[in-house]
Amino acid sequence: MGRPVFLGLLLALALALGQRLTAPEEVARSQVIKRALPAVVRIQGTAPAADGGTVGTGFFVSPLRVVTNYHVVQDLSDLTIRLYDGRTFPAERFAVDPGIDLALLTVKGVQAPAVLSFNRASPESLPLGMGLVLVGFPYGQGPLASSGILAGVGPLEVPTPDPSIGAEVGAYLFTDAPLTVGNSGSPLLNLQGQVMGVVADVVGGPSGVGGIGVAIPGELAAQSVEDLERFGIPQRGWLGASLVSLEELPPVLLRALGLTTTQGAMVDRVEPGSPAARAGLRGAQRDAQGRLLALGDVILAINGRPVKDKAEVVRQIARFRPGDRVRLTLWREGRRLEATLVMMARPRR
Rank of each mutant, 00 (worst) to 15 (best):
4 P>G: 12
5 V>E: 15
7 L>R: 14
23 A>V: 10
31 Q>N: 10
34 K>M: 01
36 A>I: 01
44 Q>Y: 00
45 G>P: 05
48 P>Y: 06
52 G>W: 03
63 P>Q: 13
69 N>D: 09
70 Y>A: 07
72 V>H: 05
74 Q>D: 13
75 D>F: 08
77 S>D: 04
77 S>E: 07
84 Y>I: 11
85 D>C: 12
89 F>P: 01
90 P>F: 08
90 P>Y: 05
98 P>N: 10
108 K>G: 01
116 L>T: 12
118 F>T: 09
125 S>H: 06
128 L>D: 01
129 G>V: 12
145 A>V: 06
146 S>E: 02
147 S>P: 01
153 V>Y: 00
154 G>I: 09
158 V>W: 06
158 V>I: 15
159 P>L: 12
163 P>R: 12
163 P>I: 11
166 G>Q: 09
176 D>C: 08
179 L>D: 04
183 N>S: 04
184 S>R: 07
185 G>L: 03
191 L>R: 03
192 Q>Y: 07
197 G>W: 01
197 G>P: 00
198 V>H: 02
204 G>H: 00
205 G>L: 07
207 S>G: 13
209 V>S: 14
217 P>F: 05
232 G>S: 03
244 V>Q: 11
263 Q>P: 02
264 G>S: 06
297 D>V: 11
302 I>T: 10
303 N>H: 06
308 K>D: 09
313 V>L: 03
314 V>S: 00
318 A>L: 08
340 T>H: 04
341 L>T: 13
343 M>F: 06
346 R>F: 05
347 P>I: 13
348 R>H: 12
349 R>W: 08
